[in-house]
Every structure is written in structure tokens, then in C-alpha cells.
Computed example of a mutant assay.
Amino acid sequence: MVKGLFEFLTLCVLVFTGRPTHASPLELNPPRVVVRYGDSVSVNCRTSATDHGGMGWEATFGGTGLEQDVNIVTWTVDNLTDWTIEPKCYINLIDGEQPVKVLPVILYKTPDSVSISVLRHSGPMVEGTEYQLQCDIQNIAPLRNLVVKWYKGNEPLDNVTYSNVSKTPVDVSPTLMIIPSRDDDGAQYRCRAELDLGPEGPQPPLVMTSEPLDFTVFYPPTFSRPEAETLDIRVGEEMTLNCTAAGRPTPLYIWQSSHVQDALFTPPSKLPGTYTCTASNLIGKISKTFTVNPKPKGSSRTFYAIIGSVLALALALIVIAYFVYKQRADPNSTI
């Protein structure tokens, strides 16, 4: 039964293929190639068949024609520029078969340029607003081996890959959406085009990086101490109220009703009260209140009177302590 099943399967192979199956007598070395556009390439095709009617290479460039009495033929091209080339090594066997082996060829080209820009925007950015970055990569192949990487400084942000099987050079412009914050002010963004061509390709993978895009981010003022402040001031003394705020562009300051454009303000010592500071720039504004309370200034006579009273009390305590000590040391003594 097993023999009959084997004969049936063999018959099926012969019916559908017209010939029995067997291992290919051809071997390519190397089995696949990765070539830079315009470079040379050379591949050997060897046969294990001892008796054949000739072998050769068929290709748009570098074909050899049929060669007799050889067991190896070489495909060579000095300047490979055909993006779609598919070299085929073939052999004519005595039984009339012609096995063929196709050489996989990856022809690559690094990009002419890689640049980064902000779409539909120029000048400083505004905190909390969405922007679209674009990476323009010119004239690169093959696209399916391209990986585009986005960076903020040295921090990786995103990777973009392609499934397009086109072998010829193309232009691509991947994008990245961002919403900058004040922490992005002064940051540098860049994109990198990386051709990963596998183990047969250049190692490490070929890389071209854009020039950095410097970020300027505008944001509204914020106080380092946003809460209202209450302070005491003696008549005749000076006090400086600090209304410093962080913002970009640099904030301007207005105190109460006077147009004092400064973060520090010294109010008149004889005019305690409430002072309001407003810090503003192109993006927004914020206010803070200072309440200054009067505090009576003590006289020098009062000061010396207090000091004298303290000294007199201390002396009296010392005298009392002395007589108590003497009394306990000699009970029969008299004062």
C-alpha cells in the first residue's frame, strides 16, 4: 500500500511538472549581493554536474553566453547601474533539462541630502501649540531598506519604515507632530536616514543626518513665588519688592499705576499699602500683590531703658542668690 502511494505521488509530480524533482546542480557564490550604484560586482556560478551540455549567465549586463566544458562561470559588471537587473545562471543537462538559479541583487544609493523643517511656520514657536516637522530625504534607494529616525538632542522620538518594493531612487518626506513646552526652548531636533541592507550590506548601516533644527519657544510669564506677600516696614526704612518672573520674550513689569518696567521696586517708606505688579509679554500676563504694613520705629531712649531694667533685675537676682547661699552655709551667722 505504501509503495502504491509513493508511485501515485511520483506520477502526480510528473503530471503537473512534466519532470521529476531533484536538487539544483547550481551554486552561487556569494548567494546574494548588495552593490552601491556604479560599483563593480562579481559572482561565481558552480555546478556539481559532471556531464552537461554547457552553462552560462543570462543578464542585461555581464551575460556570458553558453560555455562548454566548464564547471564554473563568472558574472562580472564593472559599473552596475541597472536598478532592476536579475542575473540568471543556467545549465543544459544531458537529459534535456535546463535548471536556472536567479541571483538576488540589491543596488543601493545613499541620499543626496537630508534636511529638517517646520511645515507652514517660521520664527519662534508658542508653548502648547501643535506643529508638524518634516524630514526631506532626496534620491535614495531602495526605499524598503530605509529607516528614518527622529531625535530631540540625543533622545530618540520615533522611527519610520517603508514597505514599498520600488528599487529605483525616490524622494520621501516623513513628518512628526510635536507640541513644544518651555522645556523645548533651546532644544535641537534632527532626523536621520539609515539604510539597513542586511548582513551582506555595509556594517554598520549607512547613515546620513540632517543639520539640527534649533527651537525657540515663547511662553507666558510665571512667578517663582506666585503667592501674594505681606511685609512689615518701619517708617523711614527701605524695602525692595521682588516681582521677578520667567517668560519668553522677557517680561515687562508695571507696578500699580506707575509705568515702572522693572522687576524690583522700592516703594516710598512713608506710603505703606497694597502694590500690584503685572508681568507681561507677547504670550500672556500675570499679576501679584504685595501688602506693606507700617511698623512703628522705636526710640533710642526706650531701647536704653529696656537694657537698664534688664541689668538691674539681673543684679538683684545675683545679690539674693548670694545671701541665700551664705545662710545655708552658716545657719548661726547673722546678716
Rank of each mutant, 00 (worst) to 15 (best):
L195Q: 08
L119P: 01
P180C: 07
D232W: 12
L197Y: 12
E227N: 14
I116H: 01
S113I: 02
H121V: 12
K167W: 00
S117T: 06
P212Y: 01
L206H: 03
L107A: 08
F218P: 02
P221S: 01
G128I: 08
V170Q: 10
D232G: 06
M177E: 10
L241Y: 01
T168N: 14
Y189L: 15
T209M: 07
V126P: 00
I179V: 14
R120S: 10
Q138F: 01
Y131G: 02
N159I: 14
P156D: 06
P142E: 03
D183Q: 15
L103Y: 12
P199A: 14
Y108E: 09
A193S: 14
P220C: 04
R182F: 10
G186A: 10
E238S: 15
T222I: 09
A187T: 06
E97A: 12
L195K: 08
F218C: 15
I179P: 06
L133Q: 02
F223Y: 14
P142T: 12
P220H: 00
Y131I: 02
I179N: 07
N242M: 00
S117Q: 13
N242E: 07
V207E: 08
S117R: 09
P204L: 08
V148D: 06
C135H: 04
Q98R: 15
C243V: 07
E130K: 08
E127Q: 15
E127T: 03
Q134N: 11
G128T: 10
V207I: 15
V172G: 12
C135K: 03
L157W: 04
T161R: 12
R120M: 07
E127N: 04
L107Y: 04
K152F: 00
P205H: 11
D184V: 00
R144N: 15
T222F: 11
G123P: 06
T222H: 13
L213D: 03
G186V: 11
L206V: 05
P174S: 05
P202G: 07
E229N: 12
T216K: 11
C135G: 04
V165A: 15
D184R: 01
L146A: 13
L241S: 06
L143Y: 00
R234I: 01
T230W: 02
Q134S: 14
D171I: 05
E127S: 13
D183L: 14
M177G: 02
V102F: 09
K109H: 07
I178C: 00
Q138W: 05
R144G: 10
V147D: 10
E155L: 09
R234F: 07
E194C: 09
D136W: 01
I233Y: 02
E211D: 13
P142D: 01
A228D: 15
V126Q: 00
Y162K: 09
